[in-house]
Design a protein around this nucleic acid. Structure first.
Lengths: 98, 98
DNA sequence: AATTGATATGAATATCTATTCATGATCTTG
DNA sequence: CAAGATCATGAATAGATATTCATATCAATT
């Protein structure tokens, strides 16, 4: 029961960041290259890269090579199909729809 | 749009902690005194108190004096009435039901 | 194969958050 | 009202996370 919470907290930490939320919002609309994402956010190149890694390791986004660029897309799970604009953390479901 | 995310991230940070999740779980069942909460969690007295303040300031719990003890209860919002075992952050809804 | 473009990685640092410790406040009871 | 019980607060520290900077990787192009 405490271990479950630790796991859940860990996943929430991934989302509890302005930059990562912005990235997710962007990718929830459509897949984008790193450069395109940063055209919107205007961050230090490496900083965005670090945040993308965190999102990747959390399984929230996936990357595929596309020429010299890399294309990122939001990973939607089965549970999300029923749940509109939401993010499935396994432990809980974060829904943004009003 | 970035400010909204900043606000949302701030609220998620409150939840992104093992101890605070545990406290919320406990209080979602029924109101409890600080001592009762700590009978379950077994933390340093002041540490629990610090976490309770964070939850209070986020509007997730409320405290009322009860003799020399203090009774805490989970604050449920209207939006939650439709949403079973969930936490309303204003910016988004966290649901724990499976 | 050398150069350029696009992204990732690692180490160093800065910033924030959790934890502890000592102390203060509030209520009850003898 | 002094003492004990319960909880809160503040300052100090430890620990974690974000940010920067320099460098590495990988693919395309010349």
């Amino acid at each position: 029961m405490d271990k479950l919470n630790a796991n859940c907290a860990e996943k929430l930490k991934v989302l509890a960041d302005t930059t990562r939320l912005s990235v997710l919002q962007i990718l929830m609309q459509e897949p984008k290259h790193v450069g395109e994402i940063n055209a919107v956010l205007g961050l230090e190149q490496s900083l965005l890269s670090h945040h993308l890694r965190i999102l990747r390791e959390a399984g929230l986004v996936e990357a595929t090579r596309d020429g010299k660029a890399v294309l990122y897309h939001f990973v939607s799970t089965t549970r999300q199909k029923n749940a509109g604009r939401a993010i499935d953390l396994g432990c809980c479901l974060l829904s943004f729809e009003e």
